[in-house]
Amino acid sequence: MNPPNREKVLAVSAGWVAVVLNVVPGLGAGYLYQRRWTAYWITSALATAWFVAGAALSANAAAGTDPDNQLLGLLGLLLLSGITATEAGLCVKRVRACLDQSSTQ
């Protein structure tokens, strides 16, 4: 018996679970569910860079925290989670369509 390949594992995963996991906790948890390690590490690196940039900017700002900086940080993380959630859902659809097409031929 052959172990399932990467595409089959991705095709049988629930796309909505990956989308929800990328939105709710954010930071690419849906990629862990899909076993897409490269996408997870890229997302983690981007989120970490966003946190570091926010910390550096707040250290250079005045003693009080600026609400605009907080809003910018939140919007950046929301944008990251939205993009990763959309990409995770589309990837499942793309792999399923490819496997369906190859099985009909």
Rank of each mutant, 00 (worst) to 15 (best):
C98M: 10
T43K: 03
G64Q: 14
Q101T: 04
L10V: 05
N60I: 12
L79C: 14
Q105L: 14
L75H: 03
L32S: 02
Y40S: 01
A14M: 04
P67I: 06
P4Y: 03
G15T: 01
A11D: 03
L27K: 01
T65S: 00
L78S: 08
W37A: 02
T38Y: 05
A29C: 14
T38C: 08
L72I: 13
N2M: 13
A62E: 14
W37Y: 14
Q105K: 10
L10G: 08
K93T: 09
I83L: 15
W16Q: 01
A61S: 14
A56R: 01
L74F: 13
G73A: 12
P67M: 10
A56C: 03
E87V: 06
R94E: 07
N5S: 15
A62N: 15
W41L: 15
L72D: 07
A49V: 05
T48C: 12
S58L: 08
L78P: 06
Y31V: 09
G54Q: 09
R36L: 01
G15R: 00
W37I: 10
V95S: 00
Q34R: 07
V19S: 00
Q70M: 15
E87N: 11
P4N: 08
T43I: 12
L10P: 10
V20E: 02
Y31S: 03
W37Q: 02
G26M: 01
R35Y: 04
G76L: 00
S58Q: 11
Y40N: 02
S58H: 05
L80V: 08
V52E: 02
D68E: 14
S44Q: 15
Q105G: 11
V95T: 09
S102Y: 04
R94Y: 02
L72A: 13
N60T: 14
V20K: 00
W41H: 03
L71M: 15
R6D: 13
T104L: 11
S44E: 10
A11T: 02
D68V: 15
L71N: 13
V12G: 09
A11S: 11
T84H: 14
A49C: 10
G30M: 06
L90G: 09
Q101D: 03
A97Q: 04
P4W: 13
P4G: 10
G64K: 11
L77W: 10
A11M: 02
L75N: 08
G82Q: 12
L79E: 01
D100G: 02
G15H: 00
T104D: 07
P3M: 11
I83R: 10
D100W: 06
V17C: 03
S44G: 14
D66E: 14
T84I: 09
W16A: 03
L10Q: 04
M1V: 06
V19P: 07
Y40T: 03
I83T: 12
V12Y: 10
V95Q: 05
L32Y: 12
S103Y: 03
D66Y: 03
V95I: 13
I42G: 05
I42E: 06
T48V: 02
I42S: 12
S44F: 15
A49I: 04
A55K: 04
C91I: 09
L78T: 07
V23T: 09
L57T: 04
A85W: 07
G26T: 07
V52L: 14
T86I: 09
L71I: 12
L27R: 08
R35S: 01
K93P: 11
